[in-house]
Structures are given as C-alpha cells and as structure tokens.
Amino acid sequence: FSITQFVRNLGLEHLMDIFEREQITLRVLVEMGHKELKEIGINAYGHREKLIKGVERLI
C-alpha cells in the first residue's frame, strides 16, 4: 500500500506533486496534522481533513 494509492483512494491525486516534492511517505503522513499539511502547501481545510481522517482509518 503506497502513498500514491492512498491519495488516489481519497480522490486527492492532484496533491501527489506536493507529496513527491516533499518526499512524504505514509509513515510521515501519519505523523502530520493540519499545521504540517498546511506548511507543505495543502491549503484547503477539506483536503487536510480528508487526509487526516483517512490516516486514522489506516492505523
């Protein structure tokens, strides 16, 4: 299971460039909250919320 699959499953594949540029893996994403996601350029609250909720389902 990769970050690419995870992001695609959430319908947020347009954010993949950010994850690749910042070298974010699923392991790193698990540790990130709204503040960190915003810092790397994910400005939409809804997108950040989707990512965080998606990660919570993985754990």
Rank of each mutant, 00 (worst) to 15 (best):
F1D: 11
S2T: 15
I3L: 14
I3E: 01
I3R: 02
I3Q: 01
I3A: 05
I3G: 02
I3N: 00
I3C: 05
T4A: 14
T4E: 15
T4S: 13
T4Y: 14
T4D: 14
T4H: 14
Q5W: 09
Q5M: 11
Q5V: 11
Q5K: 10
Q5N: 10
Q5H: 12
Q5I: 10
F6Q: 00
F6P: 00
F6N: 00
F6R: 00
V7G: 00
V7Q: 00
V7E: 00
V7C: 11
V7Y: 03
V7D: 00
V7S: 03
V7H: 00
V7K: 01
R8H: 12
R8W: 08
N9C: 14
N9A: 14
N9W: 12
N9M: 14
L10F: 02
L10I: 09
G11N: 08
L12D: 00
L12R: 01
L12C: 04
E13V: 11
E13M: 13
E13S: 13
E13C: 12
E13H: 09
H14W: 07
H14D: 12
H14M: 12
H14G: 08
L15D: 00
L15A: 03
L15S: 00
L15N: 00
L15T: 02
M16S: 10
M16F: 05
M16N: 08
D17R: 10
D17C: 10
I18M: 06
I18D: 02
I18K: 05
I18T: 06
I18A: 04
I18L: 09
F19Q: 00
F19L: 07
F19D: 01
F19T: 01
F19V: 04
F19P: 00
E20S: 10
R21D: 05
R21I: 06
R21T: 07
E22Y: 10
Q23F: 07
Q23R: 14
Q23D: 09
Q23T: 08
Q23C: 09
I24M: 07
I24L: 08
I24D: 02
T25L: 03
T25G: 06
T25A: 05
T25I: 04
T25P: 06
T25H: 05
T25C: 06
L26Q: 02
L26S: 03
L26I: 10
L26C: 08
L26T: 04
L26Y: 07
R27N: 13
R27V: 09
R27K: 13
V28L: 13
L29D: 01
L29E: 00
L29N: 00
V30S: 14
V30Y: 11
E31D: 13
E31M: 13
E31C: 14
E31K: 15
M32G: 01
M32S: 04
M32P: 00
M32Y: 08
M32T: 01
G33H: 07
G33D: 07
G33F: 03
G33Y: 03
G33Q: 05
G33W: 02
H34P: 04
H34I: 02
H34V: 03
H34L: 04
H34F: 03
K35H: 09
K35A: 10
K35T: 09
K35R: 10
K35F: 07
K35S: 11
E36T: 03
E36R: 05
E36Y: 02
E36S: 04
E36Q: 08
E36I: 03
L37K: 01
L37A: 02
K38V: 07
K38P: 02
K38Y: 10
K38F: 09
E39G: 11
E39R: 10
E39N: 10
I40P: 01
I40E: 00
I40L: 11
I40Q: 03
I40D: 01
G41S: 03
G41E: 03
G41F: 04
I42H: 01
I42Y: 00
I42A: 00
N43E: 15
N43V: 14
N43P: 07
N43M: 14
N43D: 15
A44K: 14
A44G: 11
A44L: 13
Y45A: 11
Y45W: 13
Y45Q: 10
H47R: 02
H47W: 10
R48T: 03
R48F: 05
R48Y: 06
R48W: 05
R48N: 01
E49F: 07
E49V: 14
E49A: 11
E49K: 11
E49T: 08
K50Q: 12
K50P: 01
K50G: 05
L51I: 15
L51C: 05
L51Q: 00
L51M: 05
L51H: 10
I52S: 01
I52M: 09
K53C: 09
K53Q: 11
K53M: 09
G54R: 04
G54K: 04
V55C: 12
V55D: 00
V55W: 06
V55P: 00
E56K: 15
E56M: 12
E56A: 13
E56T: 10
R57K: 14
L58H: 08
L58W: 13
L58F: 13
L58G: 02
L58M: 11
I59Q: 11
I59G: 08
I59L: 09
I59V: 12
I59R: 08
I59A: 09
